[in-house]
Design a binder for these strands. Sequence first.
DNA 1: TGTATATAGTTTGAAATCAAACCATAACAG
DNA 2: CTGTTATGGTTTGATTTCAAACTATATACA
Lengths: 159, 159
Amino acid sequence: MSKTKGQPEASPSEEEGKIRLGPLENFIGFNLRLAQDASFQTYAQHVGKPHLRPGRFAAMMLIHQNPGLTQMELSRAIARDKSSVTPLVQTLQREGLITRTPSEIDRRRVTLRLTDAGEEVLKSLLAHAEEHDRKLDAIVGDRKAELLELLKDIVKHLT
Amino acid sequence: MSKTKGQPEASPSEEEGKIRLGPLENFIGFNLRLAQDASFQTYAQHVGKPHLRPGRFAAMMLIHQNPGLTQMELSRAIARDKSSVTPLVQTLQREGLITRTPSEIDRRRVTLRLTDAGEEVLKSLLAHAEEHDRKLDAIVGDRKAELLELLKDIVKHLT
DNA sequence: TGTATATAGTTTGAAATCAAACCATAACAG
DNA sequence: CTGTTATGGTTTGATTTCAAACTATATACA
């Protein structure tokens, strides 16, 4: 024990790439998270600051596709808790992108619709999202159908 | 304008399953998010409350696999900002699961190691994670290699 | 009808996260 | 050496999120 420490400081991976992942290497969940994260990051910086957030885009698209959608329906479709939807739609409304009108057949419900301004913004967001997804398409190439099927299977079986 | 509303309340998907996704249907990013979310949810409720969080498990596994790992290295490996790592490792330390010793060769760095208790907890978490990933394995079957390759390709090309 | 139960949405509180500002130490340049 | 620049980690502030409690409506049933 001449040196104060028994071990040479450890065998810490001197470079980031050399880190051992162990079992994580082949865990689907872990790799799913890394991929989703990378995708998100790329998208976010692509869109810039103002209208970012994939959640926003997804929400607006769903409202566009399903005018009169309720918050609960939206909540399920984007897999977010209903309590997360509240501030989201309130923000969109405050920005004049959607309208929230109480349902007449069920006064608990709020129905959502895009405003004209909302449609405009959605159009622009869609353009960005498409460009981003083209990048992903380029990576997966002809394996895209397979990938989508796998992801959808996972969602279907776990839900 | 005989009726107060021009449209019959909308054509809102009466059941949750019938919502139109539009372009989202085939966006890799969107499906990636849903799958990762479903996976996370399932894992979380599997482990129960106490030691949950995939981030915790991943962090502990990486420290186990790479004793002496620094926070920056950990940060990159789990794709989290370094400022997110700080509270994570502090919590782990407070719970007696890891040690954080300042590096002697570079006094800015903190090196991380699992304690014996940490190793124990990791063992148990690993069991849960494996069981969870078996569920995923069952879903993807023999397409697992393909899926992992796709996910890793996405990460590699987007980073 | 009236009571119990379920559902839509909001509120509140806790956790995770990122980004930017900051501090300390290290590496580098003259 | 000394000043400049880069790097590891922490702090702070804003955002997103979930979960649980709560309000209000609606539905079921007795």
